[in-house]
C-alpha cells in the first residue's frame, strides 16, 4: 500500500516538477515569475488535443509535435508581451503575466468549450509488479518522461553554448551582457524552453484527470509550493521540492483527509516562508548594490 502511494506520489510530483522547472527557468533568466505558466501548458495541451481529434493526426505524431509547439507558444508570447516591458518596473511584467493567465484560461474555455474531455491514455493500463507492489505503468511512464526532460536540461545547461550563456546571464545579467551574451535571446530561449516543458507536463496530466480548462491551476499552486520549498532559484531544488509535495499530497489524502488536498500547498508555502525562506536547497544570496 505505502509503496504504491509513494510511487504514484512520485509520478504526481514529477508532473509538478516539470511545471516548477518552467517557472524556475523563466525566473532565473528574467527575474519574472510567470503566473500564466500553467495556463500556457493547458492551452498547448488543448492544441495537441485539437490536432489529435479535429486534424486526425496519430498520437505519436502529436507527441512529437508537442515540444516544438510549446516552444512556438512561448516564443510568440515572450515577443508580444514581455519584450516591450523589459525596461519597465518588475511589477509590470508580473501584472502582464497575470493578464496572460486570463487570456489563455478563458480563451481555452471559449474555443474548446467548458466541459472536460477525455484525453487518450499514453501508457497501457496494465500495472507492473515491482518489489511486490503493483504499480501503474502510467506512474512509471510519467517518471521516465520527467527524468528524460531533466537529463536533457542538464545536458543543455552543461554542454551547449546557449546553456552556458543562460547560466551566466542568470548569475549576473549585466556582466554577461558585457561579455557579449545576448540577454534578450536568453530570455526568449528560456520562455520557449519553459513553455515546451509545460506542454509536456500538460500532456502527462491530461490523461490522469480530464482535459479541462481548469486542470492546471492546482498543478500550478503545487509547482509554486515545490519551487519555494526548493528555493525558486535552483533547478534540482525545485524538482526535489515537487517530488516531496507529490508524495506528501498522496499520503495526506490517504491517511488524513482529502478535503484540503489542494490547499495544503498553501500551508507548505507559508511554513517554508516562515522558517526557511531561502528554501531547503539554496543558500541565501546577498544582493550586491
Amino acid at each position: 500500500m505505502i509503496t504504491q502511494l509513494v510511487a504514484s506520489g512520485l509520478a504526481l510530483g514529477s508532473i509538478y516538477a516539470l511545471l516548477a522547472l518552467s517557472l524556475v527557468l523563466i525566473h532565473k533568466a528574467t527575474d519574472v515569475v510567470n503566473f500564466a505558466q500553467g495556463e500556457m501548458a493547458m492551452f498547448g495541451t488543448f492544441i495537441c488535443f485539437a490536432l489529435l481529434t479535429r486534424a486526425g493526426l496519430p498520437l505519436p505524431a502529436v507527441l512529437l509535435l508537442a515540444a516544438p509547439l510549446g516552444v512556438a507558444l512561448g516564443v510568440v508570447t515572450e515577443r508580444a508581451t514581455m519584450r516591450p516591458l523589459q525596461s519597465a518596473p518588475p511589477v509590470n511584467a508580473l501584472i502582464a503575466t497575470i493578464g496572460l493567465w486570463m487570456i489563455f484560461h478563458h480563451a481555452a474555455g471559449w474555443i474548446w468549450g467548458y466541459d472536460p474531455v477525455r484525453f487518450p491514455s499514453l501508457f497501457s493500463p496494465e500495472p507492473v509488479e515491482i518489489m511486490g507492489a503493483r504499480i501503474a505503468q502510467n506512474s512509471l511512464g510519467i517518471i521516465a518522461v520527467s527524468l528524460l526532460v531533466v537529463v536533457l536540461l542538464y545536458l543543455f545547461f552543461e554542454f551547449t553554448r546557449m546553456g552556458v550563456a543562460m547560466r551566466a546571464a542568470s548569475m549576473n545579467r549585466r556582466a554577461a551582457q558585457l561579455m557579449g551574451v545576448d540577454v534578450t535571446r536568453t530570455s526568449l530561449v528560456a520562455w520557449g524552453l519553459a513553455s515546451a516543458i509545460g506542454v509536456v507536463s500538460g500532456l502527462l496530466i491530461a490523461p490522469l484527470t480530464f482535459l479541462d480548462f481548469e486542470m492546471m491551476f492546482s498543478v500550478l499552486l503545487k509547482a509554486f509550493a515545490g519551487a519555494i520549498l526548493g528555493g525558486f532559484n535552483s533547478l534540482p531544488g525545485a524538482v526535489i521540492g515537487c517530488l516531496v509535495i507529490g508524495v506528501l499530497e498522496n499520503l495526506i489524502a490517504a491517511y488524513v483527509s482529502t478535503a484540503f488536498k489542494d490547499t495544503f500547498a498553501f500551508g507548505i508555502i507559508i511554513l517554508v516562508l516562515m522558517f526557511r525562506p531561502q528554501g531547503l536547497f539554496t543558500r541565501r544570496i546577498a544582493k550586491k548594490v
Binding site: 515569475v33 508580473l94 499552486l221 489542494d262 498553501f266 508555502i269 507559508i270 544582493k287
Partner: peptide, 24 residues
C-alpha cells in the same frame, strides 16, 4: 508577515494560496 522575509514575488504567491484557502 511570512512573505516579507524574502524579496520578490513570494507575497503574490502567498496571497494566491490564501484566497483559495479562505474560499474553501
Amino acid at each position: 508577515l511570512p512573505a516579507l522575509r524574502v524579496q520578490g514575488h513570494y507575497l503574490a504567491i502567498a496571497t494566491l494560496g490564501f484566497a483559495l484557502f479562505v474560499q474553501q
